[in-house]
Design a protein around this nucleic acid. Structure first.
Lengths: 143, 143
DNA sequence: TTACTTGCAAACGTTTTGCACGATT
DNA sequence: AATCGTGCAAAACGTTTGCAAGTAA
């Protein structure tokens, strides 16, 4: 989804369109990689000089509420965000560059049912994440 | 695995057995729930009054290196630890009380291969986590 | 005796909050 | 004009580091 669509959705939700929000949205909506608030700040500042780090946090929070971004959990840190997928998808993350790709999960329902029956847990949610190297980082490593 | 076995393994790995380590190990090894360093500190202090929070962090770090504990990533926070499973297992976590259960993953290899082929990523690791309510918390909720 | 380990205090990096000013609607 | 949003500064967290004193081997 494009930055414009995100901005539109923010506005539809009763939020005002400001230079700070535009800068953050335009930075994150276009990102293929998981980026941290500080990285967003550094990049978005090129679009809006006066941007404060606080506004990055506040905008990311709103975008997360609206389901437009999601936090990416990784072994080393859980501070980065990527544009969210529509519907339930799983994440494939490059350990090197943070590039993320969404994919449709195989049908995990049979497994989930079986675990639920076996353990007595009522299962509400699941995360499936794959970590590896994207094509670019593979070839970069071979040089 | 028991606290004794953990202590033994620490010693085998060249670490000294101290009151601080004993207190932390005895607290974490017996835990069925994911607990944070601060929770470990509060609990372990009952066993060893002079314990410092710093030693909790340092001991958890060692235990993680030795593969005796693992960090649990959850939507709200990624600070908690549980005793690790032997071999590759997946986690089932109670959203309410943090109780964790390990389970053998279904065979995800076919899925992983197919994603790898489709995306060009070289996949090195995967996480599968289920979130829900354990039996105790389900019945507690019904009262 | 030696080297490792400790707890304290201070430093750190990240995230949140209070607030007066500024901007959007 | 009214409210919402901003950036700054400061506070609040969780975690790490430097260090002198204490302890296991």
């Amino acid at each position: 989804m494009s930055a414009e669509a995100w901005l539109h959705q923010l506005q539809q939700s009763g939020y005002r369109l400001t230079a700070a929000r535009r800068a953050v949205v335009e930075t994150v909506a276009g990102s293929l990689r998981a980026i941290t608030p500080l990285q967003v700040y550094d990049t978005a500042r090129r679009r809006h000089r006066g941007l404060g780090l606080v506004s990055v946090y506040r905008t990311l929070e709103r975008l997360e509420e609206l389901g437009l971004v999601q936090r990416v959990h990784q072994p080393e840190s859980c501070q980065a965000f990527v544009p969210a997928s529509r519907g339930h998808q799983h994440l494939l993350i490059c350990r090197e560059c943070g590039r993320t790709t969404h994919f449709e999960g195989d049908d995990l329902q049979p497994l989930i049912h079986s675990i639920s029956r076996r353990t007595g847990y009522e299962i509400a949610e699941h995360w499936l994440q794959l970590f590896g190297l994207c094509e670019d980082c593979q070839s970069r490593g071979k040089h």
